[in-house]
């Protein structure tokens, strides 16, 4: 049975089960919208004192925030059930996934869809509208396509980060906090221009947890900004490649980690 069909099947089952708690879905969605809005107020607060941040105007930073945020919300929607991995491993319920004729990663991801992230996606879209209203962009077909690529690659790169981050719980049962630091931390850093970070953090975000490829590098192209740090121009177009490699590495790490699964007593 192919992975996509299985995913759809499990997700539909989950949504049917969740439908019994629809009031809590509405509250969660509103809460998600509200908390991420506060998040953006923090960005605006910085600009009450500064006109530019690392050479980026408020609308340009809003562009990073909005475009990256939509990608993050999509990853959140589809794969955030990976956060349940630690719970599954701790309770031994992961055993059940191993005795079914289907991939463990698909089963964990399909365990739930986080519909509340619709709230986050809405908020990020509004921020993006604000950004586009103020940032003077010379639209071309290439730049419009790049907008789509930012959202798609963002979703894939964050998904890869989520998958790789979840593997920590197979090695140490108390790995949740480390995982959260990588996933949510990665999103936080993706919201700011790379220029404001020190060289050590820049390398981390560029090559290890590659969130600089979510919005920052492609945004240089869309906004028509010069390449910083003496980097070659093609880096602006490398996001799809980075997304593919990141997903490949993350899935490989997951399969290695599962072989270290220890289950629990009885």
């Amino acid at each position: 049975m192919n992975t996509l069909r299985l995913w759809r099947l499990l997700v539909v089952a989950r949504i049917r089960a969740q439908w019994q708690y629809r009031a809590s879905f509405v509250i969660d969605t509103i809460a998600s919208f509200a908390t991420s809005s506060l998040d953006f107020l923090a960005v605006l607060a910085i600009f009450t004192h500064l006109h530019t941040l690392g050479g980026w105007s408020v609308h340009q930073v809003a562009f990073l925030y909005g475009a990256g945020g939509i990608g993050f919300a999509m990853a959140d929607l589809f794969v955030s059930n990976l956060e349940q991995t630690s719970q599954l491993v701790r309770t031994g319920q992961f055993d059940v996934m191993l005795i079914r004729p289907a991939g463990t990663l698909t089963q964990v991801i399909a365990g739930d869809v986080s519909l509340r992230s619709v709230g986050k996606a809405t908020q990020a879209s509004l921020v993006l509208v604000y950004a586009l209203s103020g940032a003077a962009i010379h639209w071309t077909v290439g730049r419009a396509l790049m907008m789509l690529a930012i959202v798609a690659c963002g979703a894939l790169i964050f998904s890869a980060v989520w998958i790789a981050g979840s593997c920590i719980v197979f090695l140490t049962v108390d790995g949740d906090e480390a995982t959260n630091a990588i996933t949510y931390g990665g999103n936080f850093f993706a919201q700011y221009p790379l220029d404001v970070f020190g060289p050590w953090l820049r390398r981390l975000l560029g090559f290890v947890v590659p969130t600089a490829f979510v919005a920052y590098f492609p945004a240089l192209y869309v906004l028509g900004k010069p390449m910083p740090f003496g980097l070659p121009g093609w880096v602006r177009f490398a996001s799809p490649l980075v997304a593919a490699v990141a997903l490949g590495v993350a899935t490989a790490v997951w399969h290695i980690a599962v072989r270290h699964y220890r289950s629990t007593g009885s």
Binding site: M1, R5, L6, L9, L10, A13, R16, A17, Q18, Q20, G92, Q93, D95, V96, I99, R100, P101, A102, S266
Partner: peptide, 30 residues
Amino acid sequence: ARRIGVVFGQRSQLWWDLPLADSFELARHL
């Protein structure tokens, strides 16, 4: 997995919030 069946007294393979019949239907697809 297609050739063995496993029952754990302490773990559930059923979908907690769905009617029992739905779990059986999901198993058919799985």
